[in-house]
Simulated scan of single mutants.
Amino acid sequence: MRRDYIRSTLLIFASIVIGVVGWSGHVLLLPVALGFPVLWSTSQSRSVAALVSAAYFLAASRGLPQGVAAFYSSNIWPGLLLWLGASMSFVTVHSVLWTKYPNVRPFRYLLAAIVMFIPPFGITGWAHPVTAAGVLFPGWGWCGLGLMTAGLAGLVTRTWPAVAIALIGFWLWSAAIWTDAKLPEGWRGVDLEMGASLGREAGLQRQRDMIATVRGAASDGVRFVVLPESALGFWTPTVARLWTGASGDTDATVIVGAVMVDPKGYDNVLVAIDRRRGRILYRERMPVPGSMWQPWRSWFGENGGARADFFANPVVSIGAGRAAPLICYEQLIVWPVLQSMLHDPDFIIAVGNGWWTDGTSIVPIQRAVTTAWAKLFAKSLVTAFNT
């Protein structure tokens, strides 16, 4: 009995370490998350598997309580409640599908992995180990994703040490030749450090400052400039006229985050602006649950909250290319990027407004994840974040 207790404690502690290290924001450390399936499969009981799952998920998403407290300017308790609540889907899926029968275990784990990257459970499917495919198999595309899936299944069998050795070999090989994802030709992403004022302070002077920032970035043959999520504030006819008028003496197109509001709620969007017009380029498929996306409002006849377009506009046309846009939260879950990759875009656009994540690893994790997906499918990547 004491031996089982010690073993369970070690499994939980190891799961915490894997969650912290694997999701530290360093792209080459993402494969550390592959230790989770091994720990899950070696759990002695369903209750231990649940604790191992909780330890991994909570450790991987450890920045959430602090970030939520900063976002709402409140104490830590709302963030802690959201942190624990969000972990319930991950823990429930992995505890329900755990089994003591080794021959069935690979199929159960694959089912858990699939359930956690498609809605509804995929809505909070953070820290998915399959994300490491981009590090182990850069450029292999769907074949690499298939190998990663097979590897996940192999890690929950009795032959997991051999599978782990093979995956570590791919990891070391990849790390030895690793290069960051390339920037699309003629594109430039602009990171900002405007804190909480971005998107909230939208007066004329702020708009002029943003236009000046774009002018400074649109040089040396740059034809497309990307600004972070919410950088434009509210997208209105007045803002559109101001920006199109200011673009009259430049050939650059600006891709910038904005918000479109109507009586029923709002859309988190990317807008494309050039000298001729401004248009909605992309509507966010999955806003942040809770703080932005609040579907329960409609149950009580209320309006408000961000709309989720789910499987709409997975790719958009811009210039002569096709892009897969990912706004903030969409970078942390699996299905939006895989849906986009089914349409074979030319590159990925990843933007975010992460001022509220100061002191956490959330923005570095977003950068690491988007880099991993871009590397897996051999796509160029342009990013723009506000901190």
Rank of each mutant, 00 (worst) to 15 (best):
V351C: 03
S361Q: 15
D346P: 09
I327D: 06
V334R: 05
Y329A: 10
Q339L: 15
A320V: 12
L342P: 04
L338C: 12
S361E: 15
V316C: 03
I318D: 02
V369P: 00
I365P: 05
G354E: 11
I333D: 09
R322G: 07
Q366M: 13
I318L: 11
A350M: 05
A320G: 12
T360Q: 08
D346V: 07
E330W: 07
A324T: 10
G359E: 11
G354R: 02
V316E: 06
I349P: 01
P325V: 01
R367P: 00
G352V: 04
I362V: 11
P345V: 11
T357K: 00
G359A: 09
I333L: 04
A350G: 04
P325I: 03
G321D: 12
W356F: 14
G354V: 08
F347T: 06
I327W: 08
A324L: 14
I348C: 08
W335D: 08
L326H: 10
R322P: 09
F347H: 11
W355G: 01
L326A: 10
V369L: 13
A350E: 03
G319V: 09
I362A: 11
I318A: 02
M341Y: 10
A324M: 11
A323G: 10
V369A: 07
Q339M: 15
V334S: 14
V369K: 05
P345K: 07
S340H: 12
I318R: 00
A320S: 14
I362K: 06
G354S: 12
I348V: 15
P345N: 09
L338A: 13
A350Q: 02
G352C: 05
W356D: 01
N353F: 07
P345Q: 06
R367G: 02
S340A: 15
A324Y: 11
P364I: 06
R367A: 02
R367W: 00
R322D: 14
N353D: 13
I362P: 00
A368S: 05
A320N: 13
G321W: 10
G321Y: 12
I362D: 04
S361I: 14
F347M: 10
